[in-house]
Amino acid sequence: MNKVVKNAQEAIKDIQDNSTIMFGGFGLCGIPENCITALKEKMVKNLVAISNNCGVDDFGLGILLKTRQIRKMIASYVGENAEFERQMLSGELEVELNPQGTLAERIRATGAGIPAFFVPAGYGTEVGIGKEAREFNGKMHLMELALHADFAVVKAWKGDTHGNLIYKHTAANFNNMMAMAGKITIAEVEELVPAGQLDPNQIHTPGIFVQRIFQGVNYEKRIEQLTVSK
């Protein structure tokens, strides 16, 4: 078994124009920095990006937005990115906004082999337009579909050569479900170790979900809202 690739360039080498890609992270926390840079350099276009947020103007997915490599964005909250809002309001960028929990579950469902499910979020709002609604236990629910992607690109704190992943603090966020959901899942990690070095009791994402893994470099880990107590 060899899942280890040399770097981000090698990991993304078969990502083509028009691919649908899930990107892990919440805001700028736990984002696959190396792969985003590599995708920018590869100049792949017309991407459909699935990510909770879209970075900020000059970092995270905002980088691929600025270069107009993203055709469609599926997200839940995009408030931090002025360029995103501009492209969306002008119609240059196609956007599908999902309630955050629905987005998370649509991704989880794909990895778990569940084609559709019902949730109450969004019933009676514009999110429900065109969706099947059904009553369960006296409450209305919307049918939501699993969300598929050609690739999932995730970031973990530690990983091993079998693809097992461990996240740090709140950097797990969407990474764990996306790793399960990608047809091909690429994981970049801050620390890559030989199989057997991570405690199996501590693994968050079992290696079965990960096809490629590499040791990332030069993590900037930019902070979006530096807030300190006095």
Binding site: Y77, V78, E85, L97, P99, A121, G122, T125, V127
Partner: peptide, 8 residues
Amino acid sequence: VKGMGGAM
């Protein structure tokens, strides 16, 4: 348009 995040 900021998005609904987790509010819904």
